[in-house]
Simulated assay, not measured.
Amino acid sequence: MTIRGGCLCGEVTYEVTGNFLSAMNCHCSRCRRAHGAAFASYGEVKPGQFRWLTGESNVSTYGEGKGAYCFCSRCGSNLAATWEGEVLEVALGTLKDDPGITPGYHQHVESKAVWHDILDDKKQFGQGYLEPTDENA
């Protein structure tokens, strides 16, 4: 299976080969800010399953080490997250094809937006690795 995706302006495209390992909704403060939404939905892939097809020179990265975000420097679309420099999570909202999976759980729910209620019965996991502070709340 090959699953394609890309940014809003079409400059950057990518593909994932094989099946996603899992999918989740992340409620940490960083993901909320990066996506401008109550949570970010990501699909997890194995090392080597992800590759940029076009526009890789327009991909910028914010953050270091675990949890750096990859986004299009032209339109700002948040495309993926890297762990130690390798893309291991794909922003599900940027997929053009059916990923064959839906988010199975919520993570970092103690950081969730106060104005958002989680209404489904999917498992919920606690604190985010980057909690809001007085400086960035």
Results as ranks from 00 to 15, higher is better:
Gly48Cys: 05
Gln49Ala: 15
Gln49Met: 08
Phe50His: 11
Phe50Pro: 05
Phe50Ser: 08
Arg51Glu: 11
Leu53Asn: 09
Leu53Glu: 09
Leu53Val: 15
Gly55Asp: 03
Gly55Lys: 04
Gly55Tyr: 04
Gly55Met: 02
Gly55Pro: 02
Glu56Val: 10
Glu56Gly: 03
Ser57Ala: 04
Asn58His: 14
Asn58Gly: 00
Val59Met: 01
Val59Gln: 03
Ser60Met: 07
Ser60Arg: 12
Ser60Gln: 11
Thr61Glu: 07
Thr61Asn: 05
Tyr62Cys: 01
Gly63Met: 01
Gly63Val: 04
Glu64Val: 12
Lys66Cys: 06
Lys66His: 12
Gly67Trp: 05
Ala68Gln: 11
Ala68Cys: 11
Tyr69Cys: 02
Cys70Ile: 04
Phe71Pro: 03
Phe71Gln: 09
Ser73Gly: 15
Ser73His: 07
Ser73Met: 02
Arg74Lys: 12
Cys75Glu: 03
Gly76His: 11
Ser77Thr: 15
Ser77Pro: 11
Leu79His: 07
Leu79Thr: 12
Leu79Pro: 03
Leu79Arg: 09
Ala80Ser: 14
Ala80His: 10
Ala80Ile: 04
Ala81Val: 14
Ala81Pro: 00
Thr82Ser: 15
Thr82Glu: 15
Trp83Thr: 13
Trp83Leu: 13
Glu84Phe: 11
Gly85Met: 10
Gly85His: 11
Gly85Ala: 09
Glu86Gln: 14
Glu86Ser: 12
Leu88Glu: 12
Leu88Val: 15
Leu88Asn: 08
